[in-house]
Amino acid sequence: MTHAEIRAAFLHELIGIAPDLDPATIADDDHLQDDLDLDSMDILSLVTALHETLGVDVPEADYPQISSLASAIPYLAGKMS
């Protein structure tokens, strides 16, 4: 998958968990918890969805790696390559 495809998949799952978010207004460096108000259950739901759709199992220790689009896309690309 290209970075653009991973970005689209990540945003799709994020919006599924937080439907009130507008993907057009999410900045790459917005922090999922501090800026977008996701809680620990939301993060776990996102990680579960990413596992199902991308086949990437993000261990708990790596949760900080997916805390924003800017860090999540290269992290997920690395895990998929």
Binding site: M41, V47, H51, D57, V58, E60
Partner: peptide, 17 residues
């Protein structure tokens, strides 16, 4: 919780809550 979750897929993980 960290020990339980280490070997589990995301769908089976436990939260401290």
């Amino acid at each position: 919780v960290a020990c339980l979750n280490a070997d589990r897929p995301p769908s089976k993980r436990i939260l401290l809550g």
